[in-house]
């Protein structure tokens, strides 16, 4: 359960930092009127949406941290046989990186109000994300063809489940992205899309990060890294 505890620890640190700024130590009965420590809440929609996304990412983070914890526990059982990763995964990784970059650029152009670049960026992001998903399916088919079936070993099962869970999150993101793209085509000016594009970009970067994490675990690099740390410590 190490990875989920590390994740929770990080959230706890953020939470404590935030609470400290909110005057958690003040004595509220001593203040009347609009309190000195009052930090105005920005209830305008962009801030709301951004906070909403952040909290949602914490939930998704918890989900993946738990999957990884389960993986780490299960892999210590003697029947575990690592899966040889299909090479296409590296191509997929590249696609996802490109997708993130494209959305990042799209975000910038939305802020600058460049409609054409924005459209291009969004389309590119969508296309590369689709390429990523198709690549993942290709990887599944290769593995099945090579006899690495879901049921034959838990390492295989974890491969399918982890990539599947991640893929579903990408699909969810694509729905949001698709709606944003539709809005650009309906002629909504770039300035008004700034928030949605920004949110998509944040989500994409997050999914890229999760993917890199999963990849490091599936390849066993994370395990090797932890072993090295352990040895350095002892």
């Amino acid at each position: 359960m190490g990875s989920i505890l590390i994740f929770m620890g990080a959230l706890l640190a953020i939470g404590m930092w935030w609470l400290a700024r909110q005057g958690i130590m003040t004595k509220p009965w001593l203040e009347q009127g609009i309190a000195a420590t009052y930090v105005p809440t920005r209830s305008n929609p962009p801030a709301v949406a951004r906070t909403g996304l952040r909290v949602f990412l914490a939930v998704v983070g918890s989900l993946f941290a738990l999957f990884i914890s389960a993986y780490a526990i299960r892999m210590q059982m003697p029947d575990w046989r690592d899966v040889p990763l299909p090479n296409v995964l590296w191509l997929n990784t590249g696609m996802l990186v490109l997708s993130s970059i494209a959305l990042h650029e799209a975000g910038k152009s939305a802020r600058r109000g460049e409609e054409e670049v924005l459209k291009l960026g969004l389309l590119a992001a969508g296309a590369t994300a689709l390429a990523f998903l198709s690549g993942q399916i290709l990887a599944w088919r290769q593995l099945t063809a090579d006899g690495y079936l879901l049921t034959s070993n838990s390492a295989n099962a974890f491969f399918y489940v982890l990539t599947g869970a991640h893929g579903l999150h990408v699909i969810g993101g694509l729905v949001a992205l698709g709606r944003t793209i539709a809005r650009t085509w309906r002629g909504v000016p770039p300035e008004r899309l700034r928030v949605s594009v920004g949110l998509c970009a944040t989500y994409w970067h997050f999914l890229l990060f999760v993917w890199l994490l999963l990849l490091s675990i599936l390849t066993g690099w994370a395990g090797t890294f932890i072993d090295i740390c352990r040895q350095a410590l002892s």
């Binding site: 909110q22 958690i24 609009i34 009052y38 930090v39 809440t41 209830s43 709301v48 906070t51």
Partner: peptide, 14 residues
């Protein structure tokens, strides 16, 4: 998110 973002004016956490 409602608690975080939609508190009335003057409604500090405490």
């Amino acid at each position: 998110v409602t608690v975080l973002q939609a508190r009335a004016r003057g409604m500090t956490l405490m």
